[in-house]
Amino acid sequence: MTRGLIAAYHELDALVEGIEALQHRKFTKFTVYTPTPRHEIEHAIKPPTSKIRLFTLIGGLCGVTFGYWIAIWTSDYWPLVVGGKAIASWIPYTIIGFEVMVLVGALSTVYGMFILSRVPKITQTMGFDPRFTGGHYGIYVETSPERLKEAEATLRESGAVEVTNER
């Protein structure tokens, strides 16, 4: 069973120090909150690159394939024969292919963000404080009950203005 602590920070450098101190003391399960994305936090956490590009690539390829396919298939299904002209002409169909690529690619990118960020969330109360969308930074640490005291001390030492037990 794990227990959780929420720390609220006023200042960005204190937050970064808190992240580094937690990493140094081998606390691995924590979530950082920030009102706006900051490079300083990214440099401290060193997260892996988002996998959203895979969703974009696959969505885009599916879209362009479908766009060309629907235009070519319907032309062959009901041919409009105009002397000497191609029944399925790739030049105008590139417009359809392109538009459907953008449509499906863009929607699958958003879908990827939803999947990877785990939104929509039905409940958002656990490990979160409404101040984190305002002016405060925050860290939610999950750890074993034995290490709870150590985690709290680490967060307070780094400059957290408030540390509360979550459960």
Binding site: T31, V32, Y33, T34, P35, P37, I41, E42, I45, P47, T49, S50, I52, R53, T56, F98, E99, V102, G105, A106, T109, V110, G112, M113, F114, L116, S117, V119, P120, K121, I122, T123, Q124, F128, F132, T133
Partner: peptide, 28 residues
């Protein structure tokens, strides 16, 4: 707001998504 919480992983994926949407919207 879909239960958005401003967490770092949310922002990371959000920023990427925003970049790709911008890249799609430009030729669009």
């Amino acid at each position: 707001s879909l239960g958005w919480r401003n967490s770092e992983p949310e922002w990371r994926h959000f920023a990427r998504m925003y970049l790709f949407l911008a890249a799609f919207s430009t030729p669009l």
